[in-house]
């Protein structure tokens, strides 16, 4: 277990370094003035420039003893803390809701798979998983705007000032990973059908619900492996949904800083995302270790 975690940590470090190198590739525009009103713009892309940027980057960390300040003179870490807190309001509930409800819905879907309830559920989930989250969000906004304009509803649809601001973006990023979890859970339960231990359990007169519990325990390893995907999906969609809803979180500012070529700031906003991913990997490994002490399949 310890070796496994150490290996994940090394991979994580390599990925961070790889990301920094891609981030530091030169992409600035250089404007030269030739006198009068003659200007030319150029995008230099040479290895020397890249080396210079890497040196500057290291130098920045050496002199500032940390991330330093942004252009407004606010320490980046301070700025990051505020924005990250807003992000956490979305990421944490979205992650656990997606996993928890996804699994519950998957179990329900599996339990009723032969009945019309299950068929309707499968159909609906399939339709919803085909809708891209940005369209879902815009559609929701369209309806809410019409409702607010006609006076049926009074609420702030954009921004991050109200206590309920995080709910709309959260719903938009939760739906797809939740449906994915649901589909995955029901598929892996269906794969268990026909195993010998189920016949034994049934022959001894165990109730269906208890049998389900046994099946679920066998599915844990493959279900928990999906946690990383759920987190990745939430983190990929979050910046865009934040931008659409002007919810000023870390994702919003990550995009902003990348487009403005502020390398240090981009890294400061990207690092927490990478740490979230790493934490998800570690967490799922730990939970797996705790729930399934024996390697899956070792008993069969």
């Amino acid at each position: 277990m310890g070796w496994d975690l150490l290996k994940s940590f090394l991979v994580f470090l390599l990925i961070v370094v790889g990301f920094i190198f891609i981030l530091l590739l030169p992409r600035e525009m250089e404007i030269t003035h030739h006198g009068g009103l003659v200007f030319t713009a150029d995008f230099p892309f040479t290895f020397d420039l890249f080396k210079e940027k890497v040196q500057d980057f290291i130098h920045h960390f050496q002199t500032e003893k940390g991330f330093g300040e942004n252009k407004m003179g606010v320490p980046i870490l301070e700025e990051l803390q505020t924005f990250l807190q807003r992000d956490l309001h979305i990421i944490i509930p979205a992650f656990f809701l997606a996993i928890f409800f996804g699994m519950i819905l998957g179990i329900i879907q599996f339990y009723f798979r032969e009945k019309w309830v299950g068929r309707i559920q499968a159909f609906l989930s399939w339709i919803f998983s085909s809708i891209p989250d940005f369209f879902f969000y815009i559609g929701l906004q369209y309806i809410l705007i019409k409702l607010v304009a006609n006076g049926y509803l009074q609420m702030n649809l954009f921004g991050n000032d109200d206590w309920y601001s995080f709910i709309l973006p959260m719903i938009a990023v939760t739906i797809f990973p939740m449906l994915f979890m649901m589909k995955f859970t029901s598929t892996s339960l269906e794969n268990e059908v026909g195993q010998d231990y189920l016949r034994t359990a049934r022959s001894k007169g165990l109730q269906r619900l208890f049998i389900l519990k046994h099946m679920l325990w066998n599915c844990w390893p493959s279900i928990l492996n999906q946690a990383q995907f759920v987190m990745l999906y939430i983190l990929s969609s979050l910046p865009i949904i934040e931008k659409l809803s002007s919810y000023q979180g870390a994702g919003y500012h990550l995009l902003d800083s990348i487009f403005k070529n502020e390398d240090v700031r981009s890294l400061a906003f990207m690092l927490p995302y990478l740490v979230f991913m790493f934490a998800t990997v570690v967490l799922s490994k730990l939970v797996k270790h705790w729930l399934v002490p024996i390697k899956s399949g070792a008993l069969r």
Binding site: V11, F12, I15, G18, F19, I22, L23, L25, Q228, F229, L232, L235, S236, P239, I240, L254, L255, I258, F259, M270, Y273, L274, M277, F278
Partner: peptide, 14 residues
């Protein structure tokens, strides 16, 4: 491994 950590859309922008 790289893409299971970094959202692909961020890499596209970069």
């Amino acid at each position: 491994g790289f893409l299971s950590y970094i959202p692909s859309i961020i890499l596209v922008i970069l």
